[in-house]
């Protein structure tokens, strides 16, 4: 297990390093001039050139890259060119909001998606299944900005139960989490429904039924347990993506998350901040993947041996 862990850890570091390098090259190749973006169109060239020198943008790409990696290894991701604050501070201060929204959104997805999936699978083809499908389709079809604005108008303005956007209290979290979650609900409902139907056709379910177990016991102890595994994997990957930010939801609700920050950094050509947010997102994805893999390895010895098992 230790050897497996070390192998995976090295792999994870390699992926993050690769993402950092690729992003650095891509940002360097982006058309535009970060110093000019900062200084604005009217600043004299002498001022802009001075800013380029101070930021080291006048150096060749390899020199800039080595300098960046060297500093990053010491925990210095540079300063945002937009507000001159350390990138690490700027990203870290957005983490609580990002994590809250990601977890709450995922919670909504699961709390609605899982029961909907079960209901649909229990009576395939029935009106419950049809309704679940329709709800799923609506969830997938409505753009989240529209859903968010309508939710704010109805529950923030017409019936003022929730605040009109913003961040800070549990109430602020409800509408963004619901808006974020409802879109994903459909996905989980569909996946779980199909997995359940697949598992229901397995021999061991027939055996369980034949043993005379109640339908409820068969569902909870045998069917659901086996059908949920892919859902758990999906949820973990989903969480990693949500941690990378949900630009639209953050924009509509004024939620200070990393997604909106990354979007603005790209628009402003804020190179250090683009690098910082991409690094954060890649560490989240790689880290959560690693955790899931380790969990799998702990549960299933075939994984850590590197084989696929006999079929």
């Amino acid at each position: 297990m230790t050897a497996y862990l070390v192998r995976r850890l090295i792999g994870a570091v390699g992926v993050v390093f690769g993402v950092a390098t690729l992003t650095f090259v891509m940002v360097f190749m982006m058309p535009g001039d970060a110093a000019r973006m900062y200084a604005g169109p009217r600043a004299p060239e002498a001022t802009v050139q001075r800013i380029r020198e101070i930021w080291g943008l006048d150096q060749p790409l390899p020199v800039q890259y080595v300098r960046y990696i060297g500093r990053a290894l010491q925990g210095d991701l540079g300063n945002s060119t937009r507000d001159n604050r350390p990138v690490l501070t700027v990203v870290v201060e957005r983490l609580p909001a990002t994590i809250q929204l990601a977890l709450a959104g995922l919670f909504v997805e699961l709390i609605i998606g899982v029961p909907l999936g079960i209901l649909a699978a229990l009576r395939p083809g029935s009106w419950v299944d049809q309704l679940a499908t329709v709800i799923s389709l609506i969830g997938i079809s409505i753009p989240s900005f529209a859903l968010g604005l309508v939710a704010l108008y109805v529950f923030g303005f017409l019936i003022p139960i929730f605040p009109l956007g913003g961040y800070g209290t549990p109430l602020h979290l409800v509408l963004p989490a619901l808006t974020l979650g409802i879109g994903g609900t459909a996905f989980y409902a569909r996946v779980l429904r199909n997995n359940l139907l697949e598992v229901m056709g397995e021999d061991f379910i027939r055996t369980a039924n034949a043993k005379g177990l109640s339908a409820r016991a068969v569902l909870l102890r045998h069917t659901l347990r086996n059908a949920l595994l892919p859902t758990v994997t999906l949820a973990a990957l989903d969480l990693a993506l949500l941690l990378g930010g949900t630009v639209v939801i953050e924009a509509v609700f004024g939620w200070p998350g990393v997604g909106l920050q990354a979007f603005q950094a790209i628009r402003n050509q804020d190179t250090p901040l683009i690098m910082g947010t991409v690094l954060f997102a890649s560490v989240s994805v790689v880290g959560i993947n690693l955790l899931v893999d380790l969990l799998y390895a702990a549960l299933d010895p075939r994984v850590r041996l590197g084989g696929g098992g006999r079929s």
């Binding site: 604005l149 913003g166 004024g254 909106l260």
Partner: peptide, 10 residues
């Protein structure tokens, strides 16, 4: 900060 314009008018 970060208040959408339509939400700001509401």
């Amino acid at each position: 900060l970060l208040v959408d314009q339509s939400v700001g008018i509401l």
